[in-house]
Simulated scan of single mutants.
Amino acid sequence: MHRLAAGPALARLEWVLDGLDGKPGWGADASDVLAAAFTAVVTPERYVEVTRGRAAGYAPVVVVGLDVGETTARARIRRHDGTVDVVSCVVEAAPPHRIASTWVAGLVPAGLTPRLPVDFTDYDLPPVATGARLVVFSGVPGSGKSTLADAAGAELGIPVFATDWLLGALTPFGGRYFEAPLAMAEELLTTLALRQLLAGQSAILDHPTERVVTRERWRSLARRAGAEFRVVVCRCSDEEVHRDRLEGRSRGIPGWHNAGDWSTVRQRLANFPSWHGEALSVDTVRPRERSLAAVIRHITA
């Protein structure tokens, strides 16, 4: 396992991870590392035995996330089956900072309400008010979708939930280093959309929506909730204008970047799956007033 930065809690967490990594000779110093309050409940010998037994499911240890404080440290590590567990370690405040408690738990604790389904067709929903709309503004960065989504939301009095704002809020908590930020944003947006529809209210989702499975998920959510489903696909037919927008924009979203990378956006645009059926395609090179009028007609039809 790769060595991490120094610090009392982190140093002790590394010791635990060495055990889960199956390090030869690990645990010989357990009596010196574990605090008296800990060994009064679990003997050092028993703790070493259990930890070595768990190594079969982790070694070599792959750390996918880390949270560190003065007396606490947590690592998210991947099991061989692909699931993620959280290893927590609490140390005494005074030197030599022996381990007061340590435990391993699943990233998603047992007993929670199951996560939302990929397909809402058979999802149990209480009766909801009719007339609500679930509107998706789709397109690559710089295509103008956020500008149109905000304008449509203001015109119709519908709240706009935007990926960039959600992810920006998570930046102080390490959000930019999460493994799948767009998938995380999609889960947040799905939850917010469900909450709105359960209240009989409409929602606008501002998200690239490149994944077809996400499109079908939101379509099934709207259908199950008895809401109208509307899609607005934004594109910019003038490549030079698109690039200028992307590289010159300043949106002021806390914790998020302003300019985007043109080469990445071009690649995403080339691989962007076509929408079918109910989608309205809007070329945002056109005057904004004309585009907005077309969008409003589409949403309210």
Rank of each mutant, 00 (worst) to 15 (best):
Y47M: 11
Y47G: 07
Y47R: 12
V48P: 05
V48C: 05
E49I: 06
E49L: 14
T51A: 08
T51R: 07
R52F: 04
G53P: 00
G53V: 03
G53M: 01
R54N: 03
R54C: 04
A55C: 08
A55H: 06
A55Q: 02
A55E: 01
A56N: 07
G57R: 12
G57N: 15
Y58H: 08
Y58T: 01
A59F: 07
A59W: 02
A59S: 09
A59E: 09
A59D: 03
P60D: 07
P60Q: 13
V61D: 04
V61T: 01
V62A: 13
V62G: 06
V62H: 10
V63N: 02
V64T: 15
V64E: 12
V64W: 05
G65V: 13
G65R: 04
L66W: 03
L66G: 04
D67R: 15
D67F: 07
V68A: 01
G69I: 00
E70L: 14
E70W: 05
E70F: 10
T71C: 01
T71I: 12
T72Q: 09
R74A: 15
R76E: 14
R76C: 15
I77A: 10
R78S: 05
R79Q: 11
R79T: 06
H80R: 15
H80L: 14
T83Q: 15
T83W: 06
T83F: 11
T83K: 09
V84Y: 13
S88R: 07
S88P: 11
V90F: 13
V91P: 06
A93I: 12
A94W: 02
H97Q: 04
H97A: 04
A100G: 09
A100Q: 10
S101G: 06
S101D: 13
S101M: 13
T102Q: 10
W103M: 09
W103I: 12
A105H: 14
A105S: 14
G106M: 09
G106R: 14
G106P: 13
L107W: 12
P109F: 06
P109M: 01
P109V: 05
G111Y: 11
L112D: 12
T113S: 02
T113K: 11
P114F: 01
R115V: 08
R115Y: 08
V118H: 09
V118P: 06
V118M: 12
D119K: 02
D119A: 00
D119M: 00
F120I: 03
F120T: 00
T121Y: 06
D122C: 08
Y123R: 09
Y123C: 09
L125V: 13
L125M: 13
P127F: 05
A129C: 10
T130F: 11
G131S: 11
G131L: 01
A132P: 04
R133C: 04
L134E: 01
V135T: 09
V136C: 08
V136T: 12
V136S: 10
V136A: 13
F137N: 03
S138Q: 04
S138L: 05
V140G: 02
P141D: 00
P141R: 03
G142M: 13
G142Q: 15
S143W: 05
K145C: 11
S146D: 14
T147G: 10
T147R: 10
T147L: 12
L148Q: 10
L148R: 02
D150P: 08
A151I: 09
A151L: 15
G153Y: 06
G153P: 06
L156H: 01
L156T: 03
G157W: 08
I158Q: 03
I158L: 11
P159R: 07
P159H: 09
V160R: 07
